[in-house]
């Protein structure tokens, strides 16, 4: 394999994997605390995409559009927790899952009727869509920015989870929510913070995804989040570091299988990606980095 091609694909893998990692981490933060597999996470991301779209439509500058997009994702996530999941305290994993599934479907219908079923193009300034050359290797500006933004977000988030009280409470809750409650941490606060965090991550993913695709549509978040689900299971459902690793692995398998497998196999791209993940799970059913969890007998 020629080195320059490999490096280009590596950049693509990191930028796609980064998006999956952000989404998977958001899913994992929520799952680890209230055991919700949030199907509507994709719609939280879509809301962010529309936030960017409408801001640009109003002629606002790009930084403002980004801030609006990310904020709308956070608001959507927190509102979802408030309106749908807070009342379901103690519900089973299945009930929570199905609720989020229903919400996801309803939101998609709302987007289709309220905005448009078709993709809405987003005009980006030309300097963003260009590319640059390093040692003879051509690399896109947007993938580079994506990787940078992903890495900065993950670093800041790690610091937040390690250094702040809320972060510590969330990490503790991920391992043993009951104990955290007994220790007097406000449970509602931790859950709301988890949703806000997942919204923030989905919002960042939305901004990057929108920039890469150049358009927004009602299903924008749905399909990447499906991959992110798979990533969380691959990493070890409920494990935060596992989710990030799983995201990058899924992204890498997807990009490299597309780049280096024969053309005739390209319709099977998703089958190959997911099939490989399931094969890995056959060997490691607990995931790559199994979550630490307290189970009292």
């Amino acid at each position: 394999m020629p080195l320059d091609l490999f490096i280009q694909q590596l950049v693509n893998a990191l930028s796609l994997g980064g998006i999956y990692a952000l989404l998977a981490l958001g899913l994992a933060v929520v799952f680890s605390i209230i055991r919700l597999i949030n199907f509507a996470h994709g719609e939280i991301m879509t809301v962010g995409g529309y936030g960017v779209f409408f801001s640009l439509l109003l002629g606002w500058p790009i930084p403002a559009a980004i801030i609006v997009g990310v904020s709308m994702s956070i608001i959507a996530a927190v509102a979802m927790e408030r309106l749908a999941f807070r009342a379901m305290k103690g519900a089973s994993v299945v009930s929570l899952l199905i609720t989020s599934f229903a919400i996801s479907e309803i939101l998609k219908v709302l987007f289709q009727n309220g905005i448009s079923a078709r993709p809405k193009p987003i005009a980006l300034p030309s300097e963003l869509s260009g590319s640059y050359e390093v040692g003879g290797i051509v690399i896109g500006v947007i993938p580079t920015l994506s990787i940078a933004i992903t890495l900065i977000s993950l670093t800041v988030l790690t610091a937040f989870l390690r250094r702040t009280t809320t972060g510590l409470a969330m990490r503790a809750a991920a391992e043993d929510f009951d104990m955290v409650r007994l220790l007097g941490v406000r449970a509602g606060g931790v859950v709301a913070a988890a949703f806000a965090l997942s919204g923030l991550l989905a919002g960042i993913a939305a901004v990057i995804w929108t920039a890469q695709r150049g358009s927004v549509d009602p299903l924008m978040g749905f399909f990447p989040v499906l991959k992110a689900f798979i990533a969380t299971v691959l990493g070890g459902l409920g494990s935060l570091s596992g989710a990030v690793l799983g995201g990058f692995v899924v992204g890498a398998i997807e990009v490299f299988s597309q780049a280096f497998l024969p053309e005739s196999l390209s319709p099977y791209r998703d089958a190959i990606v997911l099939g490989s993940v399931i094969l890995i799970l056959l060997v490691r059913p607990e995931g790559l980095i199994p979550p630490a969890r307290v189970d009292r007998s």
Binding site: I230, L237, L274, G287
Partner: peptide, 19 residues
């Protein structure tokens, strides 16, 4: 796989078969 992971894996099956 345990319950929640198995559910997500079945989602993977759906996508695989579709593709």
């Amino acid at each position: 796989l345990n319950g929640a992971s198995a559910t997500i894996a079945t989602l993977g099956i759906l996508i695989i078969v579709h593709s």
